[in-house]
């Protein structure tokens, strides 16, 4: 289902200040129905604060925010009735079983048991947790807890699902299972808002994203657009012997559109990476390793902020 025309979340000059510092500084964005919208940025960029304002769990300090056409300041309960929230740290009810977590959560939304039961069973099946329905929450693996938290967020059939760092801390297998489930949700027409500091996650899941750094939005677009706008198609990663580093930037000059010097390697941004590598060899620059790869959002972030995203 293609993204709709309706705007589900609308933010203008949205600001969050805590005593002494500004976590979110006059940001503007619109999230449309049916799209997966990402907030990409390092820890402390203001992603979670933005999410919490959308989820009505943190008051807006300044600016305009409308969620599903309502004002979080005055209609928090009505908004929350139609949202699903997956927080950064799982906050499952450790005193209840897997199934009870879903059923009890449904009761918080005043969903009748006759509706909640089949829905909970469906969600457990969808998240591959049916066998654990009667188990306590504590012994579940990190990936299972995450899937249960997402299942719980879906119990009220939300119009908008908010996921804060959905796969942080999970092993690769668990991440891929989660991505696949989220992708299927998207196929069914769910609107997702996702924060992440993983490039691959943003590229996998997001139709559109904003890059946040130091409380501000520094770029906006689809992953492809952002890469085209802020990077070349390919990147040549060079590692050289320590002795060669002095004066190397001059020796590399002209081989690429842009060159980044990192503590452990050099990034040469060029439309054709192989060609750039040939020229490096032609200039008789000794290398320890060389890798040509497609540009990613990591490169976009490096370009926009001068820093890498995940240290």
């Amino acid at each position: 289902m293609p993204p709709g025309e309706e705007i589900l979340v609308h933010a203008r000059d949205l600001t969050k200040r805590f005593s002494g510092f500004t976590a979110v500084d006059r940001v503007n964005f619109d999230v449309r129905t049916g799209e997966a919208f990402g907030f990409l940025g390092p820890n402390g960029a203001g992603k979670t604060s933005t999410m919490k304002m959308i989820a009505c769990s943190s008051p807006v300090t300044d600016g305009d925010l409308s969620v599903i056409g309502m004002d979080p300041r005055t209609q928090a309960a009505q908004i929350k009735a139609r949202l699903g929230v997956v927080p950064q740290t799982d906050n499952l009810d450790a005193e209840l079983t897997v199934l009870e977590n879903l059923l009890m959560y449904a009761r918080y939304f005043d969903i009748p048991m006759s509706v909640a039961r089949p829905r909970a069973a469906d969600l457990l099946a969808f998240m591959q947790l049916s066998e654990r329905a009667k188990d306590q929450v504590e012994p579940l693996s990190g990936g299972m807890k995450r899937r249960l938290t997402i299942a719980r967020a879906l119990i009220n059939e939300p119009e908008l699902l908010i996921l804060d760092e959905p796969t942080t801390g999970l092993d690769p297998q668990a991440r891929h299972l989660l991505w696949e489930r989220l992708y299927r949700l998207k196929q069914r027409g769910a609107t997702l808002i996702i924060t992440t500091h993983y490039m691959d996650e943003a590229e996998q899941l997001c139709d559109r994203l904003v890059v946040m750094d130091k409380a501000k939005i520094v770029a906006e677009g689809s992953p492809r657009e952002l890469i085209e706008r802020y990077s070349t198609r390919e990147v040549l990663e060079l590692r050289v012997p320590e002795a060669v580093r002095a004066g190397l930037m001059e020796r590399l000059d002209g081989l690429a559109e842009r060159i980044e010097e990192l503590p452990d390697r050099y990034l040469l941004y060029a439309a054709d990476g192989e060609q750039a590598l040939e020229q490096v060899h032609a200039r008789e620059i000794p290398t320890e390793s060389a890798l040509v790869r497609r540009a990613t959002l990591e490169d976009v972030f490096l370009r926009l902020t001068g820093r890498s995203l995940v240290e």
């Binding site: 928090a76 309960a77 929350k80 949202l83 740290t89 906050n91 499952l92 450790a94 005193e95 959560y105």
Partner: peptide, 14 residues
């Protein structure tokens, strides 16, 4: 510790 209330506050309950 168990952050039970954080989860409940994401629902219409205040």
């Amino acid at each position: 510790f168990s952050r039970t209330y954080d989860a409940i506050l994401a629902t219409p309950l205040g």
